[in-house]
Nucleic acid binder design. Structure first.
Lengths: 183, 183
DNA sequence: GATGCTATTGCAACTTGTTGCATCTAGCTC
DNA sequence: GAGCTAGATGCAACAAGTTGCAATAGCATC
């Protein structure tokens, strides 16, 4: 999985059991199982890899056009507390959600082709160990974000000294926005 | 500098020469030296360490109340191309600008106390080397962002297994938003 | 099945930026 | 000093989220 490109982190329609579990887990905490949450859960169950928040809102709207963003984001916060999703920040600062994260991992973003890969604990081990030893810092691997150029893009941009480019100069037409919420 | 907390990365009112140079460098490229750019430059010259975009807009407004955000952000883009500033994404995805970056460095963010430190090339060397060797990936050190808990916060949160917290559960009252622009 | 408590929702407002476009102006030329 | 023209500005609209608050509605209870 550590070499899988963006969106390939998980197999289709992850383990059903994990999802069926959710209503009960909510109730056990005195929380409620609402139609809006049902919608989001069904969207997540059908999602793979990393998905940004606005994309999830769109998918929910496809099922229930009445969906409002605030409810989706609040539910995502809740699901993160339950460990159902996990979020990280992409190269451009936007939040990306992982569905049912199996192992903690960081992310590698190519600012050329805009693909993303996962960085396993093994690859980050030396950095994590160094920061721990030198500073007593405990790294949250799921928030590790590394930008740069993949092999292909680096080769393609080869010409002597490419000017320092903005992290998304290559972005398409209408640019989006990032989200800090409390992440 | 690698152990300096947020905002201590640079000494007060950095090297004057670097700033005096800007008008000429702009003109050499056929660009213009305008009052708005003069205002932003004076703000940057008086700034230290990392500053987020909205903070720069505020400081410009303190000098010239007519300042509009779009001009500030566009000028920052330009200054980044000139190497006068550099931006990175904080733990919450918001962009932070470094004034006159000396050496490339990544960032370490504590999600407990919200302080930030710089990660020097040395500390990141093993990760950079590993990614380069294994994947041919060229790391952009200035975009390296690591979150976690500093020694003190880790100790303070000690209790057995703290629940996985959002990256800014500890944030103050009114939360801001991140910015992807083209970064 | 009706009731009540409180978690949840939806709305509106706000934050931090970005973009398109019409207008203005810095600075080169004459 | 006046004219020109492309670069820069300012405005309005939009994007992606977050929050406070009043209204709604799960769901446990009776």
């Amino acid at each position: 999985m550590t070499t899988s490109p963006h969106g390939v982190g998980r197999s289709e329609g992850t383990a059903p059991a994990a999802w069926e579990d959710v209503p009960a887990r909510l109730r056990a905490r005195g929380l409620r199982w609402t139609p809006q949450r049902r919608t989001l859960l069904s969207v997540l169950a059908a999602s793979t890899g990393h998905v940004i928040g606005s994309e999830l809102v769109e998918r929910c709207r496809a099922i229930d056009p009445e969906t409002v963003p605030s409810t989706v984001y609040r539910t995502l916060d809740l699901l993160e507390e339950l460990g159902i999703v996990r979020h990280a920040h992409g190269a451009d600062g936007r939040e990306e959600f992982h569905v049912l994260p199996t192992a903690e991992h960081g992310h590698l973003h190519c600012r050329g082709c805009r693909q993303a890969w996962e960085i396993g604990a093994g690859e980050a081990a030396s950095l994590v160990a160094a920061l721990s030893a030198d500073r007593g810092f405990t790294v949250d691997l799921s928030h590790l974000s590394v930008s740069g150029l993949c092999r292909d893009c680096a080769a393609a941009m080869a010409p002597p000294r490419a000017r320092p480019r903005r992290c998304s100069d290559e972005r398409g037409p209408a640019p989006p926005r990032a989200r800090p919420r409390r992440g």
